[in-house]
């Protein structure tokens, strides 16, 4: 649980948290591709990026511990709206969908620019934004660019692969971050951008009532002009990188199940199979 030091944080400030959420093709369904090699998102069922669910959960836990508001932000075509309702059902207070045909084909740099403009808009509306959270990466493109790039556009510090938010006090946030083979604790000044790794935050399952209520909540849809986006920096033309081709990996591995009532014979059979496949054993 998050701790708050009220001496250093006398106002026990309520946090304004923005969570970036991406609708992605349902990872449980096989991917479909357009002739140009990009994912055919329109014909696939969209769900909330599983990694972003951890960020939503982290934001909700922070709000429950310290008070404040959690606003979801997404950039997607209008039909993605259903995939975003799950965030509302989980407990996000408001949701903003940035949707504009001029944004289609944006790469991570263009997308992060557009998202940062929504955050700026919220910043001026709310007076402040304390934290911007998002999943470490998306399940459909796995770049892990968006969080750090949004931080760059906003001129904010960022910490990636946050395992746990440990403490919020005196305008700082202390986080435990995953590193190769261990952890690192970092104290960072707010506002800041954090990308959340899933290990410590199990996303809550919304109640049936929450699902029904979320369906009746309005999702605010904004276009590029509403958030003063320079359209030369977005879309396919504004993107410095291009996806040339995507395809589903062919899975050639096949599991083999060994069964035998005699354990020794079972292991012998297993080792024999390994040798047959060219594995060198002692």
């Amino acid at each position: 649980m998050v701790t708050v030091n009220s001496k250093q944080n006398p106002s026990s400030e309520r946090l304004n948290i923005v969570v970036l959420v991406k609708p992605v093709p349902d990872p449980k369904e096989p991917p479909k591709f357009k002739p140009d090699g990009t994912l055919d998102r329109l014909s696939m069922k969209l769900v909330m990026n599983p990694y972003d669910k951890y960020a939503v959960e982290a934001a909700l836990q922070l709000r429950e511990a310290l008070g404040g508001i959690v606003i979801g932000v997404s950039m997607a075509p209008p039909h993605a709206i259903d995939a975003l309702r799950e965030a509302l059902a989980m407990g996000v207070d408001e949701f903003i969908l940035l949707s504009d045909p001029r944004l289609a084909g944006s790469d991570t740099l263009a997308t992060s620019y557009a998202l940062s403009m929504v955050v700026k808009k919220l910043w001026s509306k709310l007076g402040k934004v304390d934290l911007v959270l998002c999943g470490v990466e998306s399940s459909d493109s796995n770049t892990a660019h968006i969080g750090p790039e949004v931080a760059e556009w906003l001129g904010l510090p960022s910490v990636s692969y946050v395992d746990k938010i440990l403490e919020v006090s005196g305008g700082y946030v202390k986080v435990k971050k995953l590193i190769e083979g261990g952890y690192m604790v970092i104290r960072v000044k707010m506002p800041a951008v954090l990308t959340i790794a899933g290990t410590s935050y199990t996303p809550r399952i919304p109640t049936l009532r929450d699902v029904i209520t979320a369906r009746r909540k309005q999702i605010t849809t904004l276009n590029a002009d509403d958030v003063s986006i320079d359209t030369s920096k977005v879309g396919l033309l504004g993107s410095p990188t291009r996806v040339i081709k995507m395809w589903a990996a062919e899975i050639k591995r096949r599991g083999k199940i060994f069964t035998d009532t005699d354990i020794d014979r079972l292991i012998d059979n297993f080792l024999a199979e390994l040798r047959k496949d060219g594995v060198k054993l002692k």
């Binding site: 309702r85 799950e86 059902a89 399952i205 109640t207 049936l208 699902v211 029904i212 979320a214 369906r215």
Partner: peptide, 17 residues
Amino acid sequence: TKEQEELKAVVREFSEK
């Protein structure tokens, strides 16, 4: 309906986990 789909999805998640 979409609402029924979403309710089903929540119960499925609970049921699987």
